[in-house]
């Protein structure tokens, strides 16, 4: 067996991480969606490589599903939404950008440290990627925390899902098919509901700024 698939997957992993950072630093919402689509693409490709490498048919379906959902459907919906809601720009983050990126860097290091002992157990060829998957999840989490717009939170949420999927695909050659289908369905339905919500929020508060959603509290 050559090392080519491994190198390809590692490249994909690195790309994913890079894209995560790019999303974290991006202020323009539409670009974020594009970056999300790109991430989906890289993810799909990496699953495809794994499938090709391990000859597991259900991974092909998984890759197809990923590409369809994350490259085409969801970005399309998001684009439509954002244009309809007129929410192209993120006003500002809760923390300034450099410190966010710095924290992100620390998180990546932490994720690597965390994943190190586990990766050593892995027998699959994609052993180094768990750390990256974890890092992607954490960066997405960080993005959700630091952003103020409802739409960006949605994008962050979806990016987190990407990290999870990557972890599933790379470390264990994907989850059982029925689970993957269920996850896909949930994500899709969730997206629809989120879309509905964004309209509700917009309708109620005339803005998608999350600062309007702070009335329920202990005072």
């Amino acid at each position: 067996m050559t090392n080519l698939p491994l190198e390809l997957i590692n490249t994909c992993a690195a790309l994913l991480l890079l894209l995560s950072f790019a999303m974290l630093s991006q202020r323009r919402v539409l670009t974020q969606v594009d970056l999300y689509a790109a991430q989906g693409l890289v993810l799909g490709v990496s699953i495809l490589i794994t499938a090709w490498n391990t000859h597991q048919p259900h991974l092909y379906y998984s890759a197809g599903l990923t590409l369809l959902l994350k490259v085409l459907v969801l970005p399309f919906i998001l684009h439509r939404l954002i244009r309809r809601l007129d929410a192209i720009w993120e006003t500002e983050t809760l923390l300034n950008m450099p410190s966010v990126l710095l924290i992100g860097l620390l998180l990546v290091m932490f994720a690597f440290v965390l994943a190190q002992p586990i990766s050593e157990l892995a027998t699959t060829l994609t052993r180094g990627t768990l750390g990256i998957a974890l890092a992607v999840v954490m960066l997405a989490f960080l993005m959700m925390i630091t952003r103020r717009k409802a739409v960006t939170q949605v994008v962050g949420f979806l990016a987190m899902e990407n990290g999870l999927l990557f972890a599933a695909a790379s470390t264990t050659y994907g989850m059982p098919m029925v689970v993957e289908l269920g996850v896909g369905l949930d994500v899709l339905v969730g997206m629809f509901i989120l879309g509905i919500f964004l309209f509700h929020i917009r309708e109620q508060f005339e803005s998608l700024d999350l600062s309007h959603l702070e009335s329920l509290k202990e005072d």
Binding site: F110, L114, M138, F141, L210, L213, E214, K217, E218, D219
Partner: peptide, 27 residues
């Protein structure tokens, strides 16, 4: 009451910090 100021970012932060703390503890 201070931990519940209504801001969703803070809530997410709590989850995140909890996760990190536990991960560090388990590590």
């Amino acid at each position: 009451g201070a931990i519940q100021r209504g801001r969703i970012s803070s809530y997410l932060l709590y989850s995140f910090v909890t996760l990190l703390v536990l991960l560090i503890w388990v590590l």
